[in-house]
Simulated scan of single mutants.
Amino acid sequence: MARISIVSPCYNEDENVEACHEAVRALFAPSGPLAQYEREHIFSDNASEDSTVEILRRIAAADPAVKVILNARNFGPFRSNFNALRYATGDAILVFLPVDLQDPPELIPEMVRHWENGIEVVAGARANREETWALRTCRRIFYRIVNTLSEFEIPENVGEFQLIDRKVWEVVVSHRDQYPYIRGIIASAGFRRLIIPYTWKARKRGISKNNALRLIDQAMNGIFSFTDAPMRACSFLGFGVASLALLYALVIFVLALLSQGSAPAGTQTIIIALFFFSGVQLMFIGLMGEYITAIHAQVRRGPMVVERERINVDLVPEASENHYKK
């Protein structure tokens, strides 16, 4: 019997985790649309401080198809998701199903049907979002920037809610990024892809753990992980600014000769130029720092995630520098 693996990271989701488990189990019930498949549901808890862990223990004790990874601390959603993804043993793997069910589990059977027909990446696209206009606008700007700068396309409104074939999974988990941008990794792998639009629902219970700073951090990671265009733009801009400065110096020199050596006026111009170029330099240094920080994290080769405990997990992924159990 073929197996479908589903990965659900969670953090302080005691109001939602049981509903997520029940929604997935109903799909694979004898009367469900995926009854012919074996189910594997992997929860990755990011050191929750509420009763999420106790609920997961209870669910796993009653349901052997549920696997639980307990992290030693909060490593962020992408690292936790990617680490749990490495435990998937299914023939097809749903990369991310949020426990708040904003991405609808009822779409999974349709995704599986497309996978059965040979589509290797079936991606859900949040065509309609039950969120504020400001957030929708920021997301649109982000995707436009990334797709303009990178050598491949990350489809707009496509997140980690994607069903991928086992061969795609092998490519994805072979990456050794310390801060994996999963949707970018899947897009860079290629393979046959189909995009299914759906409505991204508003959260019914609890509050989102993604604040503005975390969303900005994720966006910056997406930009700097897959393109060197920002640094290349800085190089061209720096060359252009230097050329303009030389041209300006030549003009000042000519004006000084024509005025028979009198000191040219322009103190305000000098002050404005000084602050402007100082700002440009700081911007360049900041961009360079983003790349250096990413390189530093890769070179250190520390564990991407430290696990405290595994529940119902028999097969442990191959040991690597990015993973170990505390």
Rank of each mutant, 00 (worst) to 15 (best):
G240L: 15
E156H: 05
V121C: 13
R300K: 15
N71A: 12
A26I: 03
N12Y: 00
L27A: 07
L70V: 10
D177Y: 07
L56M: 07
G184A: 06
A202L: 13
L287G: 02
S225R: 03
F236I: 09
T227Y: 12
N147V: 04
E170A: 15
Y179V: 05
F82E: 07
G32C: 10
I223R: 00
E15Y: 03
F191N: 07
F82Q: 12
K326P: 12
A65S: 13
A2H: 12
L258M: 11
C234E: 08
M220I: 11
F239K: 07
D217E: 15
A233I: 15
E18I: 10
R300H: 09
K204D: 05
L135R: 15
A212R: 12
I295Q: 08
A125Y: 01
P9W: 06
H114N: 10
V173P: 03
N157K: 07
L27R: 05
E153V: 13
F275W: 14
P303Q: 08
F82L: 13
R113V: 09
L213E: 15
R308T: 03
F239P: 01
K209E: 02
D14C: 13
M1D: 04
P109T: 07
M288Y: 09
V168T: 11
S320G: 15
S48L: 06
N16F: 02
W115T: 02
I195F: 03
S31F: 12
